[in-house]
């Protein structure tokens, strides 16, 4: 989209206070922060150099030093020494972001600090605006979030007692968490197994107990991805395929729908898990391939039904 004079004015008015508060950045660094190009920022600075207050002698003009593109500074910002106020959308972005942050911050003092900050910024937002967009419930809460964050930032091992849903077991193991992420409000960690150095994913709400262990900043270097072979699966199902797609989009490699029947190709690395996913799905799912898997799932369902006869 072509830039208008207004876009440029808007950026220019923020450029001066930004550079004034962050002296010595390069043109390239400044361009990155403003989502612009170094050439454009140079043009902006050249233009701003000629702007100023009535009188327009060197005493009233903006004084910018950009001769060396590696070190830009503002010697006299005149009246542009403060950034512009946040727009309602900008303020809302921060307020909602802070709300999510406070949901995952488990320390009560941290939460209080975040909510105070939220209040300060909320003042910028009109009531109707604030009412129209909310966060209902960002995450499934977990009391061990704090320890997990600490373990990741300090490169520490953790010993976890974990309830694996796919194998229906509770086991204790030592792992090295490297990453924390959320999907559909549920927290997960990626961690290296201490013994095999294989990468695994654990659902945070299935960790029953956690104990922080020793630190080893170099352990992550040994990582290699899981050696589990990927299994390719083909399934067919009815109109509820749309909900299957939504819930399990990360394993679906392709999908098509013909007259209300969904044809899905899946790729998974745990046959235990996919057997349970398919046999617990309330609607009928036909496994076309692999044939062995189809048989096993049918046996599970038959055996379960046997329980009730």
């Amino acid at each position: 989209m072509k830039e208008t004079a207004l876009d440029r004015v808007s950026r220019a008015l923020n450029l001066i206070p930004f550079i004034a508060a962050n002296p010595g950045l390069s043109i390239v660094q400044i361009a990155e922060r403003f989502d612009s190009t170094p050439a454009q920022i140079s043009k902006d600075l050249t233009l701003l150099h000629m702007c100023g207050l009535p009188g327009y002698t060197h005493l009233e003009l903006l004084d910018i030093d950009y001769e060396d593109p590696e070190y830009v500074s503002v010697l006299d910002p005149q009246v542009l020494d403060h950034p512009r106020s946040l727009s309602q959308t900008e303020a809302l972005t921060l307020v909602l972001g802070l709300e999510l942050l406070s949901e995952i911050a488990k320390d009560p003092t941290e939460r209080e600090a975040i909510s105070k900050l939220q209040e300060r910024i909320s003042k910028i937002i009109g009531e109707d605006f604030a009412r129209a967009i909310t966060i209902a419930d960002g995450v499934v809460e977990s009391p061990i979030m704090k320890d997990l964050e600490l373990a990741i930032s300090d490169s520490r091992f953790i010993q976890i007692t974990y309830n694996s849903a796919s194998s229906d077991t509770v086991t204790t193991r030592t792992v090295f968490p490297t990453d924390l992420f959320f999907k559909d409000g549920i927290g997960y960690i990626q961690a290296l197994m201490k013994d095999s150095v294989e990468m695994r994913t654990f659902r945070i709400d299935r960790i029953i107990e956690l104990e922080l262990g020793e630190s080893d900043p170099t352990f992550a270097e040994h990582s290699h991805s899981s050696s589990n072979a990927e299994i390719e699966i083909e399934i067919e199902m009815g109109g509820d395929g749309i909900f299957f797609l939504e819930k399990h989009n990360e394993i679906v490699t392709s999908s098509k729908e013909i007259n209300g029947t969904f044809f899905l190709n899946l790729q998974v690395n745990s046959s235990d898990w996919i057997k349970r996913v398919i046999s617990s799905w309330p609607g009928r799912i036909t496994v076309v391939k692999p044939v062995d898997l189809a048989k096993e799932i049918e046996e599970i369902t038959r055996a379960a039904l046997q329980n009730y006869s």
Binding site: F34, T89, E90, T93
Partner: peptide, 11 residues
């Protein structure tokens, strides 16, 4: 808008 807000906050 988050990126722009952060520019203003850094300013």
């Amino acid at each position: 808008s988050g990126a722009l807000a952060l520019v203003k906050i850094d300013a």
